[in-house]
Design a protein around this nucleic acid. Structure first.
Lengths: 312, 312
DNA sequence: CCCCAGCCATAAACTGTGTGCATGGCAGCA
DNA sequence: TGCTGCCATGCACACAGTTTATGGCTGGGG
């Protein structure tokens, strides 16, 4: 009833070689098999496609009408196979990566640069979420091929741990507390300050609140920003202290950048729902290699580091 | 090993419906058949194309790379089937018609006009030959879908007779023989004239020679033209008498147009190698309807008409 | 926690399709 | 005339596609 790719290939080869016998040789089938398939195609399309002359074949008007389309179908099929090969060989394709805003700002740019240098033809598509819980939910629902963010809770797919992300305190350069001994400052020293806070639902709002709660106070918000990148800028401008991932700080920021004491860390991971394919695996390797994180496992430093709930 | 059209259709439908179950319904197959075919396609292309989520399916990077090509294949296959339908319905396609020069000049133009009015989308491709024997040989060798010309000798394919083509004598208007009684002139009256002849190998050269031989003389050529259409013009200009198919005479020719006596006819036919398809048959019907030929069968008038060898 | 519905995968049996071998018919050539 | 080349047809077999039956997993509701 419907034409098959094989039949179309047979027809085109018969026309190109000018004979059933030569086409059969070229296609490594027997002449009767070929004859039978072309006949079936003629039946499917409603009439003879080829006129069988004593020493040649000749396309009929119907055959001539159909031939260019047959060639197009076969060319498309070849492109399909070529695209599959290229994607498998990391010479084409697109990977969808989901992450939280701060990681998109801090950790991923150098990783994407390295990726682009190594696999220039494979595109990366970024999907950003304001909170690690939203990231996790979206990932569970199929929102991307790979998620990069705080280690997800109750995740039964493969998880690749990347290391821990450090947080920094940002104050104006001329703040009285801008130069503490060894550059470390307890959060409690800023208990009476108004803070550069994050908008409700932003993962770092939750992290800030919890960290301050542990230091015995509730941070009063001077301003709430939805943009992670704005926090250090606002702190530098004197709106109040900000707690930000160290990786998002611009190198040229004119501000005091201090270590919270005790340190505030957050373990990060790359995770997928199912066993990742070659493309996803390769990206994860580049990610692990080029990520500017503190090496180590939060469990091994649990005795000396504040253990925080992982949120963005 | 190789993807099949069916597998590609299955893949695209699963992606478009978002589920194997719905795709199976839409395609009128069972879900396991669909599952099995998509699996086979994944095996053929070297990896998973779809990620099976609990309530959805999601294309993998490989699947996403392949999908546009799969759609292209299916679209071209649809165009192929559509082209076949259109050609069968005389809404598309191209017919190759072989003929001799004089018929291309005289009989075919009004036929092609009528064809174009009736089937505007079906193109006609003309192949012209100087001699009916060349036409016949080319047709035997597959040179066109349909031949229109003098009835071929020893032809075992289908032959459709179209009627007989009359020949006319052309003289200058002021020729002493320009106004014979009842417009008929025996060829012998022009025995001492130099004639507008045709180039060697031109079918009408042979016809002229034979017609004159029957009248008892050999025509001396004043000029030999390769162009059939030039003959009446040269005769009108006074180069000598010309014998031409009546159908090629322009309506506005300033010349004496006489009937040879006895009349010179030539039976014409349309012929194919094998049983013609619908397109060819329809064209032949239009040809038979619109051809400006003398109705009749050369056999029925054999007693009163010079029977000539058919050449162009 | 259990039950149910929805969804996809797998196995086995059956049906449909593609292929090779054998054979025959036709045309062209020596 | 005989031989070769070429395509079509018939039959048997192997492979591919499909259905029926079954099972496993997830999510939602009681």
């Amino acid at each position: 009833m419907a034409a098959t790719l094989r039949q179309l290939e047979y027809l085109v080869t018969v026309v190109d070689t000018g004979s059933f016998t030569r086409a059969a040789e070229q296609l490594h089938v027997t002449q009767p098999a070929l004859s039978h398939q072309v006949r079936a195609l003629e039946s499917a399309l409603g009439g003879p496609l080829l006129e069988r002359l004593p020493r040649a074949v000749r396309p009929t008007p119907l055959g001539r009408a159909v031939l260019p389309h047959a060639r197009a179908v076969l060319a498309d099929a070849q492109r399909l196979h070529a695209a599959a090969r290229r994607t498998a060989g990391l010479e084409d394709g697109e990977l969808e990566v989901a992450t939280v805003h701060s990681i998109a700002l801090g950790i991923l740019p150098p990783v994407l640069r390295a990726w682009r240098r190594r696999y220039p033809a494979v595109r990366i598509r970024l999907r950003e979420y304001p909170h690690a819980d939203l990231l996790r939910a979206a990932m569970a629902a199929g929102g991307a091929d790979l998620a990069v963010g705080p280690v997800p809770t109750d995740w039964d797919g493969p998880v690749r741990e990347l290391g821990v992300e450090e947080f920094a305190l940002v104050l104006p350069s001329d703040d009285p507390l801008a130069n503490p001994p060894d550059g470390a400052l307890p959060l409690s020293a800023l208990a009476d300050r108004d803070w550069v806070h994050y908008a409700p639902g932003h993962g770092l709002a939750e992290l800030l609140d919890q960290s301050c709660a542990r230091a015995g106070f509730l941070p009063r918000p001077a301003v709430r920003t939805e943009q992670t990148a704005a926090a250090p800028m606002l702190a530098a401008a004197g709106l109040g202290p900000a707690l930000v991932p160290a990786t998002i700080l611009p190198p040229t920021l004119d501000a005091a950048v201090l270590h919270p004491h005790p340190p505030i860390h957050r373990p990060l991971a790359a995770y997928t729902r199912t066993r990742p394919d070659h493309l996803t695996t390769t990206f994860t390797e580049i990610l692990a290699t080029h990520t500017r994180l503190t090496a180590g496992n939060p469990q091994s430093s649990a005795g000396r580091t504040a253990h925080i709930d992982c949120a963005d």
